[in-house]
């Protein structure tokens, strides 16, 4: 495992921890899109179907369990926790799941590396992860009101994507036969979706002002 891959995993982990910290300690999910969180839960469910049958390393299994567990825990908090759910911005979080899930599933049926069930679900998870942040970005655009923890959550997610691209470039040059167009293109699309957010995040950080997205 190279340094880019490991840093990517760690920033991904940080993003989840920041979100859980916000929800658990402040008891608020203001500015957090439930739609995005439900899509992530579906992403991990579809991708980690091999968690019991395919053992890669202890690190790998533990991380998979953390991502699966935390994504379902976050969804539970927003939907069911009697205090947290009151701060959920239902009026602005109106993105339709099916609008993203269905095209991703059809695309996975059409374009995949191997047409076995687990392979299609794995490919579907790649496509869905690429666009799962959209409801969150739309919510941030609509509400304008971005607190520090929500901003950091999206920042860490974007950093994770950028580091994974570095990891793929590194692996391409150091490992034989390491070519995965589907993963790379969907990963690149996903990272580009954060570009706009990153621009405003860095500007607010540089000028030391509160993060605000334009209309």
């Amino acid at each position: 495992m190279n340094i880019f891959r490991f840093s990517g995993d760690m920033t991904h982990l940080m993003s989840v921890l920041v979100l859980l910290l916000k929800i658990h300690t402040i008891k608020s999910c203001a500015g957090i899109s439930l739609k995005t969180q439900e899509l992530y839960a579906l992403v991990f469910l579809a991708r980690y179907l091999d968690i019991v049958t395919n053992f890669i390393s202890l690190y790998n299994t533990i991380m998979k369990l953390i991502f699966l567990g935390s994504s379902f825990m976050i969804v539970w908090y927003i939907r069911r926790h009697r205090i947290v759910r009151r701060s959920y911005d239902k009026e602005h979080d109106t993105f339709r799941h099916l609008f993203l899930v269905l095209p991703c599933f059809i695309l996975a049926l059409l374009i995949n590396e191997r047409s076995a069930f687990k392979e299609i679900m794995w490919t579907f998870s790649l496509y869905l992860e690429a666009v799962a942040i959209l409801p969150q970005l739309v919510l941030l655009q609509r509400t304008k009101n971005i607190d520090n923890l929500t901003g950091q959550y999206v920042f860490f997610l974007g950093a994770y994507r950028a580091l994974y691209i570095c990891n793929w470039i590194y692996r391409y040059f150091t490992e034989p036969h390491y070519v995965h167009w589907i993963t790379w293109i969907s990963g690149l699309v996903q990272t580009l979706l954060y570009a706009d957010f990153f621009y405003y995040y860095f500007n607010s950080w540089k000028n030391n002002v509160k993060l605000q997205l334009p209309a």
């Binding site: 991904h12 794995w122 390491y178 993963t183």
Partner: peptide, 10 residues
């Protein structure tokens, strides 16, 4: 068959 190295990623 070569091992599917991409599957060791998360």
């Amino acid at each position: 068959l070569l091992p599917d190295s991409i599957k060791d990623e998360l």
